[in-house]
Design a protein around this nucleic acid. Structure first.
Length: 873
RNA sequence: GCCGGAAUGGUGGAACUGGUAGACGCGCCGGACUCAAAAUCCGGUGCCAGAAAUGGCGUGAGGGUUCGAGUCCCUCUUCCGGCACCA
């Protein structure tokens, strides 16, 4: 126990009286000053040491930190500090996801430019992050709204554009007809514009897309090898990418004497003989053609244009259709097939048209019943050869073809092969792989984002801005007014010369989706200050991120876009050999709080912040009443929900830090639930965390006081307990189950207090040194201070992480659990090394046997070594 | 609607790879200290019955597998996340 020697020496060198009361404010100020002065968190590339790049998702600078941020960064900080003490060269950076819609909304509300609002928020939130004591390397800070960052968005975009990985086509947006502006999905509430209340329409406009589908196969295949990601996230991404194998083919038709094909994709080509109609999207060219002399159809298409663009909205709307009056030819039978327009057919998926096989597809079945279309059963399914209503899932099962002419008797796989071959022979189609994943539309008709670096020239077309003219700088003095993009109203921005021919041209005024910014910031953190390249060789050292931490709500979009961008950058030669940005992913749960409301006699509901509510409990601790502290008004408890403005149940981290200090906030957040689960806020729980840190402080204050002599048995038992708890805590750390690590710290303090001994007892000295180190990633300030006060050393972070000592864990005897007849009946103390027959003998001689086995025949005895004896009677 | 999760005492959660359900906290009850309060400390606390010993029940609901199920399988309910322009 060399630590005790050093401990005693240091202690004598720096003796001074310890502050009696736990004062988090002064402790935290001093510890943060120490780290700043020592440059403790500056990360330097060092090829001789194993690196650990720990990254929490950077925040949107919305104004002030919310509890979700505190949780996210505390989790990251625990990992960072743990791995430092395990000897890794750790990088933990921080930056700002600084472009986005809220800045424009705030600008409209306050008439302040988004730039000023954003920079002010960044300054405030940075102070808050610092007060929480996170081990961040602030020299790598970045903000995506700075030209030195978004320049590289533009630079990469021009590369992708020249490669064809960025291209232009039309896309569908929400259109507010009153404000004459494009709305984000969240700005559409019940189908109406949030500011105008006007019914929102779909509108097709030209936009730029990034060809993420070019990487679909790779993005899907690599998922299988990503062992550091949660299965549920990988599964969601797999389903999102949505690879399906099927047949794409055309139904021939003639229009104005011209022979054309109506293309569809199906995974059930075996049902082709059951096709009784085709359905096309309302935006499909065939629908638009037919609507020209069909007012009813035109009205239906107009009706489909109303409403939002989200998949959820489209999925829940009533499935409706109208016949176009047009027919196409069945590619095998040659029969006439009517073409309908269906509001459930998506133009963005496949060819915007589907074949209708009512007998074997639930949606087609409902559609056919509704509009009286024929239903022809062509598959023998588990429930028979017929498909009487109501719909049963068996109808969609794969089976043998019937009523299908030459295909009769073929089963699914064979039928698909033969039919695909026949279609191919006729030049109408072939087998094809289809993806659910769509290309990424990055154009936004908004001001506060990265300008898309394209110039529209009447002579040369769309010309990418040359490197020497980058960045295209976003003016920071504009204030949007809700009626479209202010950039489009500022000639000094959009008027320019064509980079190609020099003639007058117009600059693109759309900006990029903010997901572009967040798709590569992790690589930029590796290369701060480089104004000549997007990333440099320093990224080779740090990338990929070893541990990424963020909300589960990003499971698909942000993470998939980042995986795509990393590959695009790899193929651009920027990140050689790096395909996956994040080796390990931890998805944290939401932060919840209690909700209370008060309903006025007029029926208005007012949400009351939990901080203002006082509850009354019954003898068992159940909440029986709640009232508002201010006016004593009765309020109703409405369960827990995610912290939100609308339910007024947010808890301000700043108030918490001011009252209890950062360590208490960090401890509670870690202790209250495991990182991946939702966390329920509790003021009492925070009090409990504060109480624990005070207890720890008091124990250390009294550490020098002489205590009673410790009995050898208690000494051994305490040491066993502390090392057992440590072993479990180290295991839990690897699982990222930090709440039980906090519990472990509590258990160790409990054991030390039971020991009633201080400095004179080696087990107490050893136990305390383990406790402070185990706790230091969670509550770094108080552990830093106590480590120094007690003379363990000058910097706890420089000390190695504790591991249990095998000798301390040795036991000669253990308590076996005894089950008799399926019930747990007690314990049997037995030598650890006892074998089955020895245990049986011991058991039969025990009191338990006397009590529970008298007169019973033993059928079998099952022994789980080191754990349990189960007697089957 | 589709995809992915979750559900354990009054409460947050714990329980190894199928092996004593409720660790560690919070709350509540009782006690110590105090003129009193706060703070702190000590003890108790799954539910039901019982004076107790003890017995029965118990991990969202219902079935199943197993010597043994919170854990594995099937069906269902409720809640949460995502659904491509919130970030």
């Amino acid at each position: 126990m060399s630590i005790i020697h050093r401990f005693c020496q240091l202690r004598h060198a720096g003796e001074r009286a310890m502050q009696v009361h736990y004062d988090p404010q002064s402790i935290e100020r001093e510890a943060q000053g120490f780290w700043d002065g020592a440059g403790s968190f500056r990360a330097l590339e060092d090829a001789s040491r194993p690196k650990y790049y720990c990254l929490s998702m950077f925040p949107y600078p919305s104004g002030k930190l919310h509890m979700g941020h505190v949780r996210n960064y505390t989790i990251g900080d625990v990992l960072t500090r743990y791995h430092r003490m395990r000897g890794k060269n750790v990088l933990q950076p921080m930056g700002w996801d600084a472009f986005g819609l809220p800045a424009e909304n705030a600008a409209m509300a306050n008439k302040v430019p988004p730039a000023k609002w954003t920079y002010d928020n960044i300054a405030y939130m940075k102070r808050q992050l610092k007060s929480l004591g996170f081990a961040l390397d602030w020299e790598r800070e970045l903000a995506t709204c700075r030209p030195d960052y978004y320049k590289w968005n533009q630079w990469l975009f021009t590369r992708l554009f020249r490669k064809g990985l960025a291209y232009k086509k039309t896309g569908v947006v929400n259109w507010d007809p009153i404000d004459q502006t494009v709305l984000a999905n969240e700005q559409v509430i019940d189908g109406r514009g949030w500011r105008t209340g006007a019914l929102v329409e779909k509108r097709e406009i030209p936009m730029y897309f990034l060809r993420i589908t070019a990487y679909a196969e790779e993005l899907l295949a690599e998922l299988e090898r990503m062992s550091g990601w949660p299965e549920q996230v990988k599964l969601m991404q797999k389903n999102w990418i949505g690879r399906s194998e099927g047949v794409r083919f055309g139904f021939p038709y003639e229009i104005a004497g011209e022979r054309k094909l109506l293309h569809v994709f199906t995974t059930r080509a075996d049902t082709i003989m059951g096709v009784t109609f085709c359905a096309v999207a309302p935006e499909h060219p065939l629908a638009l053609h037919a609507a020209r002399d069909n007012p009813a159809l035109a009205a239906f298409i107009a009706e489909c244009r109303a409403g939002g663009v989200t998949e959820a909205e489209i999925a829940v709307q009533e499935k409706k259709g109208v016949a176009t009056g047009l027919h196409v030819t069945h590619p095998i039978s040659g029969g006439r097939v009517p073409v309908w327009v269906g509001n459930y057919v998506l133009m963005g998926y496949g060819d915007g048209a589907v074949m209708g096989v009512p007998a074997h597809d639930e949606r087609d079945y409902a559609f056919a019943l509704k509009y009286g279309l024929p239903i022809n059963c062509v598959i023998r399914h588990p429930a028979g050869d017929d498909v009487p209503p109501p719909w049963r899932p068996e109808y969609a099962a794969c089976g043998t073809c019937i009523n299908s002419g030459k295909y009769d008797g073929l089963e699914y796989a064979r039928a698909t092969e033969v039919i695909a071959a026949d279609l191919k022979a006729r030049g109408l189609g072939d087998k094809q792989v289809q993806w659910r994943l769509r290309d990424w539309g990055v154009s936004r008709q908004r001001y506060w984002g990265t300008p898309i670096p394209i110039v529209h020239c009447p002579a040369c077309g769309d010309v990418p801005v040359p490197d020497e003219q980058l960045p295209v700088v976003l003016p920071e003095d504009l204030v949007p007014d809700g009626s479209g993009n202010p950039l489009a109203k500022r000639p000094s921005f959009y008027q320019c010369a064509c980079p190609s021919c020099g003639k007058p041209a117009q600059r693109e005024t759309d900006t990029m989706d903010t997901f572009v910014d967040s798709s590569w910031y992790f690589a930029r953190f590796c290369c701060p200050g480089n104004d000549r390249a997007m990333v440099d060789q320093r990224a080779q050292y740090w990338m990929p991120v070893d541990q990424y931490i963020g909300g589960i709500e990003h499971a698909i979009l942000h993470l998939l876009y980042s995986r795509f961008f990393t590959r695009a950058m790899r193929d651009e030669g920027l990140l050689p050999g790096v395909s996956e940005p994040f080796s390990n992913l931890l998805t944290q749960g939401m932060v919840l709080a209690e909700t209370y409301h008060r309903d006025s006699p007029e029926g208005r509901r007012e949400w009351v912040n939990p901080a203002e509510v006082e509850v009354t409990r019954d003898a068992k601790g159940r909440i029986v009443a709640a009232r508002r502290r201010g006016d004593g008004a009765d309020v109703a408890y409405a369960g827990v929900g995610t912290m939100s403005k609308s339910r007024n149940n947010g808890v301000d981290p700043q108030a918490l830090i001011d009252k209890y200090g950062a360590d208490t906030a960090r401890f509670f957040i870690i202790f209250a639930s495991p990182p991946t689960q939702s966390l329920e806020w509790s003021d009492e729980g925070v009090e409990g965390s504060y109480r624990y840190l005070k207890r720890l402080w008091n124990y250390c204050v009294n550490f020098d006081r002489p205590g009673p002599a410790v009995a050898p048995g208690l000494r051994k038992a305490t040491r066993f307990e502390i090392h057992s708890v440590l072993r479990q805590a180290n295991y839990d750390l690897l699982k990222h189950q930090f709440n039980t690590v906090a519990s472990a710290a509590m258990k160790i303090l409990n054991a030390l207090e039971r020991l009633s001994a201080g400095r004179s007892e080696p087990v107490a000295v050893e136990g305390l040194s383990i406790l402070l180190r185990l706790l230091s990633p969670i509550t770094p300030h108080v552990c830093h201070r106590l480590w120094r006060e007690l003379g363990f050393g000058s910097d706890i972070m420089q000390k190695e992480w504790p591991d249990p000592e095998p000798a301390a864990l040795e036991q000669e005897e253990i308590d076996y659990v005894v089950q008799i007849g399926g019930k747990t009946r007690g314990n049997l103390r037995a030598p650890k090394a006892a074998d089955q027959s020895a245990l049986e003998t011991l058991l039969k001689a025990s009191e338990l046997a006397q009590k529970y086995l008298m007169g019973k025949a033993i059928k079998r005895i099952i022994v789980v070594p080191g754990r349990l004896i189960n007697v089957v009677v």
